[in-house]
Each structure stands twice: as structure tokens, then as C-alpha cells.
Nucleic acid binder design. Structure first.
Lengths: 370, 370
DNA sequence: TTGTAAGCGTTATCAA
DNA sequence: TTGATAACGCTTACAA
């Protein structure tokens, strides 16, 4: 950003054409004579001209970008404190314990990736924003003002503000159940997946004493999965726990903490299996069980939910339910785009299929299923 | 987007103030009398007013957003083909083989996460775009026109175009070496990390017959790591391979393919260890070695690079070099913001420290190191 | 195929 | 503390 920023006027003048022609050169090159086009191209190169997205958006009344909002699980204060540099260029250390420090949410990363892919397919860009901290409202408002439509994960934006911006642009909620709202929803079949998984444990492995490790209290996904679990237990005539035997925050560190607690309190002694609300927490539980000498699946079955890559690398490989995370993101964007054209149709709810992946952490498979 | 979009004019009229006051209400509320503020607030709520980011950006000559560009490793054609819906709501299947289908690049996800965090800290939004397919140029141009500065991963944007847009806004390149360019660079200490890791294999484990599994030909990171490896070998007086024993594309699937090939061709028979250019490929190699009955680390040591979570879940746990991925993203944004204020200073190169994590895949540790 | 000109919805300067 | 008003850089009829 060294030189004065050139505008259409500069290009037009230098190329000896009108600004309309310069605009056409970018928007609809075919409508410009070959020789003219060449002249404009030359000037654009020479001047280093880049069209202003703001001016474009203002004039055309569309930004060509989709907003994506998701909740943050990182500790803001901690982020603030962590310094960016310093220390020796290379540090060597024995990483004896499988410590965990990544707060990265693979699930969100995949959904975001899906939104980017679908947006790209339609020539849209993606703008991401995380409403955390005191300025959360401003973050969302800024985002809303800069995009043509918004995809938001459940719990990222408070209901009032969401209602406010939904008056101005299409909003699609990912992974949240409809709660009396009027937005389009895209979600995975959490309920069905968990029922099928629990059925498998009960029917094929003959496990009867099962408990559920829950997620955050306010996670609709975690809640739905718990309901799927209890429904399957109920239908099998088994005792149904009123609540999860424990809750954790969907992170692996949280899972380990939970694992330690359950072990310490002897809560696993009469158990056949632990059904966890997501993969990360299941992996954490697994860490602790293994460390404590509990054999999985022989002594205790453990299952996850999501189908992140780590679940497929763990020992034992984790039986889980794969959510189509990329597809969730893609479909959400597709729906935003659809509603941009068809504003007045009824709000929709799309439920994407899931896949129960039977691997090693629930016991040996009698044979192929389904 | 049902109602007519209200503007400052509508708000101003309805609140009985000028548009300037409405603008102030948003930009600098303290400069508006409390009672006036209340009146505007009321109207904004009532009208469902959301300020236009485009108009804002145009008038203020800054967008308040940072662009982030990264290369795509997904197969575009495949993306296009994959359908979004259909199939049974739940499918149950025995996932006997540790198949791999996720093309997600954890490294990129973490870097992007870092950019978002740092941008957020400064009140900026992040716009992401992937220049893939035929319209790659347009994607980048669109991005460049809509942001105040740009962070790009190496290889995402072609040199000509990068030079073009760098005339208009600050550009910071992540994970690419300076190649005669004038951009700011942020990178991890690939070289030092690999030297330290290789030294460890040689000095502490007494391994002498080592080979390197490379990454994509055009990856500067992969190249730098290979050089670190050969340098360490050379200094130890060991035979230095001219080139990697194999190359793969940084994916786990690619690693498995490589593993199979090496096994089939008997290339591992006289080897002590395999140093891989990244974690994903190391995990893939590990998959195949384990399947073939090769014991790691007893028969053969295997190491990775990156420090993604899966490397810490694998059996054996993968010895690797952890890159500060989030910090790379954060620092890149910080640098863009810095240059926005200080346009005329010399281009900088920041090299972030790495951490060699000694785990199980290189053999038992004699004791604590460093 | 090209040009003219009227917006698009803000911010910012200056004056009141 | 508030108001007029001139940019800001483009798109898009409409006319030529």
C-alpha cells in the first residue's frame, strides 16, 4: 500500500475510455471490444488497479459474501495473555504424558470448510467471526452488515440479536433444533445415530449396564444424543438413567478429567459401557482408562460421536457415529443462497444422515452389520 | 430479508435527528446525548436497522477485515460430484479397516484459527478464500478488493497476482521462504526442528540408516525439512540420501500408499528409521507398517512433523516436531496490522520456535532431554 | 460497443 | 451536542 490507490476513473482516463467500460471489463468482458479490453487490461496491470469491494457492494447492493458465525471454546483471557514469540528456536522435550493443549474444535473446522467449499462453488466468499468477549454484539453486527446471508452454529448468537439481523438477511442455523424460531435449520441425525449405536451395544454386544457421558448443558446436540441413548435403553427394557453420569465440555481434556473422576469414585465398577456425547471426550476418557489399566473394550466399552480423524487413530479405534460435518456446512450455505432467491417460503429443517462406525472400542464384531 | 432495507436516512427521520447523529450513535456513542441516544436506539430496534458494511467501507476507506488465503488440497471435481443429501437417515457399518477419507488439513485449520483470534483481538473480521479451479484469479481479486490486508499461505496465490495486489495492501506470507519477494514472512523453524529431531535419532537412539519421506515437490516447508535432515546426517558423518526415498502429498492416505510401496519394494529391510515430512503421512506409513507386522519402534523408528492431535493419539505415539500453528496465524495478522500503520519499513521474516516432542515411535527415551 | 449520469449508504469535515 | 454536505468508487439503466 505504497502508492495512491487508483480508481475506475484513473483507469478510464488512462485507457481513454469511460468508467462504465472499465466496469464492464471486469463484470462482463464479453461486452467489451477485444482491442478495448486489451487497452484496459494493460492499464489495470500498469496501475495495479484492484476494484473496491466496498464500492462494488454498495452499488450492486450485494456483497458476494456469506457470513459464518461460530461459538468459541477458547478462553479469551488466556489467549490475550499468551505471548506470540520468545523462547529458544528449538526446544527438545520428552513428551511422556499424552498431554493435551489444543482447544481446536475439529467439528467446527470441518463445518467451516464445508461452508467455504459451497460458497466457492457459487462464487461467494466466506467471512468468519466469533462473537466472544465484551464486543460480541458488535462482531455480529459488523458481520451482518457485510454479508448477503448468514450461517450460524447453534449458541453462537443470542436470540434477540439473531432475530434482529434475520430481518435483514437470510439466516441458517447449523446443529441447533428449531426452538420456536423461523430460521432454516440444518442438522445431523443425532437422535437416530445415537439410538442405532446404543441398540448395537445392547443387541449385538449384550451390554446392559450403560451410562452416558454428557456434553455442555446448553448444547442441543448433546441433549439430543442423550435422548437417543435413553430412548434406546427404554425400548430395550433397561434401566434409564435420569441424567448423564457426568458432563464434560466436549474437549479431550474435559474427557480425561471426567475419566479420572469416574475412576476415583468407583462409578465404573458395575458398568458395561460408557457412551460419550462426542469423540473428543471419549478419547479423553479412554486416555484415563488405559492409564488406569482398565481394558477397553474387554472391561468396559467406550463410544464416541462425530467421527473425527483422531477417533480412527486411537487404540482401540473408537466406535462412533460419523456426522457429515462438511456437508452440514455446505448445505447451510446452499440453503442461504436458496433463500436469497426465494425469501418468502416456509422455514425448512434438513436432517442429514449419519453413519454408525463399528470399530474396536465396543468389542469384537460378530460379523458385518447392515 | 423480507422488508425494505432501512438506511441511516430512515432511522434519522424517524428519530428526528440528522444522519450524522445516527452515524455517531454507532461509531462514537459517547458523543451523543443520552436522551438522543435512547431515541436512536429505539428506532434502530424498531426498524431492524443494520449499518451497511459496504457503505461504511467505502466512506471510511477501510473495511475492517483481513483476508486469509490458503491452498486447497481437495479434489474440486470430486467435491462437485458429491451429492449433498440422500441415503438412509442412519447407516450402520463395520469400519474394519482404518480407512481415511478426510481431506481436512489440520495444519491449515489451526493457522486460520490463529488469524481469527488475532483479528478479533483488534476488532477485525476475517474473510477466507481458496483460489481453486478456473476462477482462482477472480477469487483472489475479489478478496483483495474487500480487505485491508492479506495473509496467504505459501503456494496459494501465484507470484504475478500476488505482486499485483501487494501494491494495494499489505501482504504477509505464512510458511513460505522469502524468494526474492518483498513481503513479510512468518514461518516456523522447520530447519532447526528437523536437525534437532534427526540428531536425537542419531545420537540418542544410535540409528544410522535413516531415510526421509518427503512432501509435495513444491512445498517449501517439505523442502526445508529435508535439508535439515540431510544436514544432520552429514554432520554426523552418515550417508546422505540425495533425495527422499519417497514423496507423498502430506495426507494420511498418501502416507499409506507410500508405506505399501516401501514395503512391497523391500526398501525398509536395511533401515533403522523413517523420517517423514509431516504427521499425516507418518501416520499413514504407520498404518501400513503395523498392518504388515513391522514393529515400531523396535524394527523401525518413524517420526512426523507438525504436532497435530492425531499424532498424540496414535499407537505408538508419534515422535514429532510441534509447529506453533495458531501462533503462525496470529503473528501473520499482527504483522499485517503493523504494516498497515508502518507501510514503509523493510520486509521482515519472523521464524517461530518449534518443539521436538519425543514420544514412543522413535524408541524408549534414555532419560529426560534438555 | 460505448458513454452519461444517477444513485448506492455511509463517514467525516466544518460550521453552528 | 448536532446538522449540512461533500466525498467515497463503483454498478446500471438509458441513450447514443
Amino acid at each position: 500500500m505504497v502508492e495512491k490507490t487508483p480508481t475506475v476513473y484513473d483507469v478510464a482516463e488512462m485507457a481513454g475510455v469511460s468508467i462504465a467500460t472499465v466496469s464492464r471489463y471486469f463484470r462482463n468482458p464479453a461486452a467489451v471490444r477485444e482491442t478495448t479490453r486489451e487497452r484496459v487490461r494493460e492499464v489495470v496491470r500498469e496501475l495495479g488497479y484492484v476494484p473496491s469491494g466496498s464500492a462494488r457492494g454498495l452499488a450492486a447492493r450485494r456483497t458476494g459474501t456469506i457470513g459464518v458465525c461460530f461459538p468459541s471454546f477458547d478462553d479469551v483471557a488466556q489467549i490475550d495473555a499468551r505471548r506470540l514469540e520468545g523462547g529458544p528456536p528449538v526446544q527438545v522435550r520428552v513428551d511422556a504424558d499424552a498431554h493435551v493443549d489444543t482447544g481446536s474444535d475439529l467439528y467446527i473446522a470441518e463445518v467451516v470448510r464445508g461452508t467455504e467449499i459451497e460458497a466457492w462453488r457459487h462464487g461467494f466468499a466466506v467471512m468468519i467471526a466469533v462473537p466472544r468477549g465484551a464486543a460480541a454484539h458488535n462482531v455480529v453486527e459488523g458481520l451482518a452488515g457485510r454479508v448477503d446471508g448468514l450461517v450460524t452454529l447453534a449458541r453462537a448468537i443470542d436470540a434477540d440479536q439473531l432475530a434482529h439481523i434475520a430481518r435483514r438477511l437470510p439466516v441458517v442455523v447449523v446443529a441447533g433444533p428449531r426452538e420456536g424460531d423461523v430460521y432454516d435449520h440444518v442438522t445431523a441425525n443425532n437422535h437416530g445415530g445415537m439410538v442405532a449405536l446404543t441398540d448395537h451395544l445392547i443387541d449385538d454386544h449384550r451390554l446392559t449396564r450403560l451410562e452416558f457421558v454428557g456434553g455442555p448443558e446448553d448444547s442441543p446436540d448433546a441433549q439430543t444424543r442423550f435422548e437417543g441413548f435413553t430412548e434406546a435403553m427404554l425400548l430395550a427394557g433397561l434401566g434409564v438413567p435420569e441424567r448423564p453420569i457426568a458432563r464434560c465440555d466436549f474437549t479431550r481434556a474435559g474427557g480425561r478429567e471426567t475419566g479420572r473422576r469416574l475412576l476415583a469414585e468407583g462409578l465404573l465398577d458395575d458398568l458395561d459401557g460408557l457412551v460419550c456425547a462426542n469423540d473428543q471426550s471419549a478419547l479423553g476418557v479412554l486416555d484415563e482408562l488405559t492409564a488406569a489399566g482398565v481394558r477397553v473394550p474387554q472391561d468396559l466399552a467406550v463410544t464416541g460421536f462425530d467421527g473425527i480423524e483422531a477417533s480412527n487413530v486411537a487404540t482401540p479405534r473408537l466406535t462412533t457415529v460419523r456426522q457429515p460435518m462438511v456437508e452440514l456446512g455446505r448445505l447451510a450455505v446452499a440453503q442461504v443462497l436458496h433463500r436469497l432467491n426465494e425469501p418468502m417460503t416456509e422455514p425448512t429443517t434438513r436432517v442429514l444422515p449419519v453413519e454408525v462406525l463399528l470399530r474396536d472400542s465396543c468389542g469384537p464384531h460378530a460379523g458385518d452389520v447392515a
